[in-house]
Every structure is written in structure tokens, then in C-alpha cells.
Lab assay of single mutants.
Amino acid sequence: KTVHVNGVQYDFDNPEQAERFAKEMAKKAGLQIQFHGDQIKIE
């Protein structure tokens, strides 16, 4: 899974790890999470 945070890309082999990371980042920055198939976007 790939997580995009403000244009920066983070790759994870483990989907659960990717989602946990995305939730942490979104919570910290007060941003929205969008799921697009294999990609998670935080903007």
C-alpha cells in the first residue's frame, strides 16, 4: 500500500501498517484520509 501525505509518498508492504500510519498522520495534522484502492491519500 502507498500512503500519500501532502505529495510525499510512503510505501508499506503491510496494509494494516499503512492504515495505522495514515490515521496517525491525519490525526496529527488534522487532515482528511481518502482511500483509493491501494493508495491512501491524506490532504
Rank of each mutant, 00 (worst) to 15 (best):
Glu43Thr: 12
His36Lys: 02
Lys41Phe: 15
Lys23Trp: 02
Asp11Met: 06
Asn6Lys: 07
Asp38Ser: 06
Phe35Pro: 11
Ala26Glu: 09
Lys28Asn: 11
Gln34Leu: 07
Ile33Arg: 00
His36Met: 12
Leu31Arg: 01
Asn14Val: 05
Gln9Cys: 15
Gly37Val: 02
Gly37Phe: 00
Lys28Thr: 11
Lys28Cys: 15
Asn14Gly: 05
Gln32Tyr: 00
Ala29Val: 11
Thr2Pro: 03
Gly30Cys: 15
Ile40Ser: 05
Phe21Ala: 06
Leu31Tyr: 04
Phe21Tyr: 05
Gln9Pro: 09
Gly30Arg: 02
Gly37Gln: 08
Phe21Pro: 03
Gly7Asp: 05
Lys27Phe: 01
His36Leu: 14
Asp11Tyr: 14
Lys23His: 10
His4Asn: 11
Arg20Phe: 07
Lys27His: 09
Val8Phe: 09
Asn14Met: 05
Glu19Leu: 15
Phe12Pro: 04
Lys1Ala: 11
Phe21Lys: 01
Glu19Ile: 14
Ala22Trp: 08
Asp38Asn: 06
Asn6Arg: 04
Val8Arg: 10
Arg20His: 13
Lys41Arg: 11
Ala18Leu: 09
Asp11Phe: 13
Val5Pro: 02
Gln17Ser: 12
Phe21Cys: 10
Asp13Pro: 05
Glu19Trp: 07
Gly30Asn: 09
Lys1Gly: 06
Arg20Thr: 08
Lys41His: 14
Ile42Met: 10
Gly7Tyr: 00
Ala26Thr: 01
Lys27Val: 09
Gln39Tyr: 12
Lys27Gly: 11
Asp11His: 13
Phe21Arg: 01
Gln32Trp: 00
Asn14Tyr: 07
Tyr10Thr: 04
Val5His: 07
Arg20Ser: 14
Lys41Val: 15
His4Trp: 15
His4Cys: 15
Pro15Ser: 13
Met25Lys: 00
Arg20Gly: 09
Met25Asn: 04
Asp38Ala: 04
Ile42Ala: 06
Ala29Gln: 12
Met25Tyr: 04
Glu16Trp: 06
Val3Glu: 03
Ile40Leu: 07
Ala26Ile: 05
Leu31His: 08
Asp13Val: 01
Val5Gln: 01
Ile40Met: 05
Asp11Thr: 10
Lys27Ala: 13
Gly7Ile: 04
Tyr10His: 07
His4Met: 14
Met25Pro: 00
Gln34Val: 11
Leu31Trp: 02
Val5Asp: 01
His4Asp: 07
Leu31Asp: 08
Ile42Gly: 07
Gln34Ser: 12
Phe12Tyr: 02
Lys41Tyr: 15
Gln9Arg: 14
Phe35Gly: 11
Lys28Asp: 10
Lys41Ala: 10
Gln32Ser: 12
Asp11Gly: 01
Ala26Tyr: 01
Gln17Met: 10
Gly37Pro: 13
Glu19His: 09
Glu16Gln: 09
Tyr10Asp: 03
Val8Gln: 07
Asp11Arg: 01
Lys1Asn: 11
Ala18Ile: 03
Glu43Tyr: 05
His4Glu: 08
Ala18His: 02
Val3Ile: 08
Ala18Lys: 03
Val8Glu: 08
Gln17Thr: 09
Ala18Glu: 06
Glu19Tyr: 07
Asp13Ile: 05
Phe35Ala: 12
Met25Ser: 03
Gln34Ile: 14
Gln39Ile: 14
Gln17Ile: 09
Glu43Arg: 05
Glu24Leu: 00
Ile33Cys: 15
Gln17Lys: 03
Thr2Asn: 04
Glu24Ile: 04
Tyr10Phe: 11
Leu31Cys: 15
Val3Lys: 02
Asp38Pro: 06
Asp11Glu: 12
Glu24Gln: 03
Arg20Cys: 15
Asn14Ser: 12
Asn6Asp: 09
Lys1Phe: 15
Phe21Gln: 05
Val3Met: 02
Met25Ala: 08
Lys28Leu: 13
Ala22Lys: 03
Ala22Gly: 05
Gln34Tyr: 06
Asp13His: 00
Ala18Asp: 05
Gln32His: 11
Ala18Val: 03
Asp38Val: 02
Lys23Asp: 13
Gln17Gly: 05
Ala29Pro: 11
Ala22His: 05
Thr2Cys: 15
His36Cys: 15
Pro15Leu: 12
Gln17Pro: 01
Glu24Cys: 15
Gly37Ala: 03
Ile40Thr: 06
Glu24Arg: 00
Asp38Tyr: 00
Phe35Ile: 14
Gln17His: 09
Asp11Ile: 11
Asn14Arg: 01
Asp38Met: 06
Ile42Tyr: 02
Lys41Ser: 12
Phe21Ser: 04
Lys1Pro: 07
Gln32Asn: 13
Phe35Ser: 11
Ala29Tyr: 15
Gly30Trp: 01
Lys23Thr: 11
Asn6Phe: 12
Pro15Gln: 12
Lys23Gly: 07
Gly7Gln: 02
Ile40Asn: 06
Val3Thr: 02
Asp11Ala: 04
Phe12Gly: 03
Lys28Glu: 11
Ile42Arg: 02
Pro15Arg: 12
Lys41Gln: 10
Asp13Glu: 10
Gln32Val: 14
Val3Asp: 01
Glu24Ala: 07
Gln9Asp: 09
Tyr10Lys: 03
Pro15Gly: 08
Glu24Asn: 02
Phe21Gly: 06
Ala22Val: 11
Lys28Tyr: 04
Ala29Cys: 15
His36Asp: 15
Asp38Thr: 06
Tyr10Gly: 04
Ile42Cys: 14
Gln34Ala: 05
Phe12Ala: 03
Gly30Thr: 02
Phe21Glu: 07
Glu43Ala: 08
Asn14Phe: 08
Glu16Gly: 06
Gln39Arg: 03
Ile33Glu: 10
Lys28Ser: 11
Asp13Leu: 05
Phe35Asp: 13
Thr2Lys: 06
Asp11Ser: 06
Phe12Asn: 02
Gln34His: 14
Gly37Ile: 00
Ile42Phe: 06
Val3Arg: 02
Val8Thr: 06
Met25Asp: 03
Ala26Lys: 02
Ala29Leu: 15
Gly30Ile: 05
Gly37Arg: 00
His4Lys: 09
Phe12Lys: 02
Val5Gly: 02
Ala26Asp: 06
Lys27Trp: 00
Lys41Glu: 11
Pro15Lys: 12
Lys41Asn: 11
Glu16Ile: 06
Leu31Lys: 04
His4Ala: 07
Asp38His: 02
Val8Met: 08
Thr2Ala: 05
Asn6Gln: 07
Pro15Met: 11
Lys27Ser: 12
Asp38Leu: 03
Gln17Leu: 11
Lys23Arg: 09
